[in-house]
Design a protein around this nucleic acid. Structure first.
Length: 260
DNA sequence: ATGGCTACACCTTGTAGA
């Protein structure tokens, strides 16, 4: 199975790129974040015509997550009960046979110590509560999306201005670890323990050209899937050319076949 | 010290992103 996660920063603005990505990579599953699109405007027929089943949890202007799958989706849950609905459309659960896909878009947090930062903390606690309830560690589960945390120094460009501590603060890294400590393996890091490779670059200050990026997008897998990890990479090409998202897809291949 | 890009909305100015 080839599984990709991509924060597209507006599905409408990125439509052509998403189509081209699906045609080029042919992932079995694509988890999309930051749709910035209401449920009514989600282009489900477009994806149907391309051979993808889709589930989506949209919201006007902000947030929004969608999961596309070449396999039929047998279960859909939007923003499980653990999550405060005022935090926006940020979590979408789908099941493909015995495989559970948890597609997430973490709260950004705006500034360390701010009110939004406290919401980010609460959101991670809610995620942990949900993962415990659904016993994610004991079943084949993929937890992927935009975590808005760069968990290790290897995930941060050299010389980052640490006055701006958001995404790299010790607090946020603790929240990230509280999730991985449930038994999840970071697919990219597991396969590439020394590689400094990023999934996001700021639009400003020629950050991509200078490779001043962060790794904040992840495909995490539960223990039953860890040994099935085959390949993982950042689709860096997606940050080039006209109108890119500020994030690139993370693409992971698993030696796993969903079974009823 | 600030703003720097991009996208969206209550759309020429504010908000949020990361």
């Amino acid at each position: 199975m080839k599984i990709a996660t991509w924060n597209v920063n507006s599905l409408h603005a990125r439509k052509e790129r998403v189509i081209a990505f699906l045609e080029r990579e042919k992932p079995d599953v694509l988890c999309i974040q930051e749709l910035k699109c209401s449920d009514e405007k989600f282009p489900d027929t477009l994806f149907q015509d391309m051979g993808y089943h889709a589930a989506w949890h949209g919201q006007k202007a902000y947030n929004g997550v969608a999961t596309l799958s070449r396999f039929p989706i047998s279960f859909v849950e939007k923003g499980p009960e653990e999550f405060d609905p005022t935090f926006g459309s940020r979590v979408l659960i789908t099941e493909i046979e015995d495989l559970r896909i948890i597609n997430i878009y973490a709260i950004n947090g705006q500034e360390v110590g701010s009110e939004a930062f406290q919401k980010k903390k609460a959101w991670f606690e809610q995620l942990k509560d949900y993962l415990l309830r659904c016993e994610a560690s004991h079943t084949p589960t993929v937890l992927c999306g935009d975590f808005n945390v760069a968990p290790e120094e290897l995930d941060v460009y050299d010389g980052m201005d640490r006055v701006k501590r958001l995404l790299v603060s010790p607090e946020e890294r603790t929240w990230f670890r509280s999730i991985t400590e449930l038994g999840f393996t970071d697919g990219f890091r597991w396969l590439h323990p020394e590689e400094k490779s990023f999934s996001w670059w700021d639009y400003r200050e020629l950050s991509f050209q200078k490779n001043r990026g962060l790794r904040i997008d992840f495909v995490l897998v539960s223990p039953p899937l860890q040994e099935s990890l085959q390949t993982a990479r950042m689709d860096r090409e997606e940050r080039k050319g006209e109108k890119p998202s500020d994030h690139v897809p993370v693409v992971v291949e698993l030696d796993f076949h969903p079974q009823a």
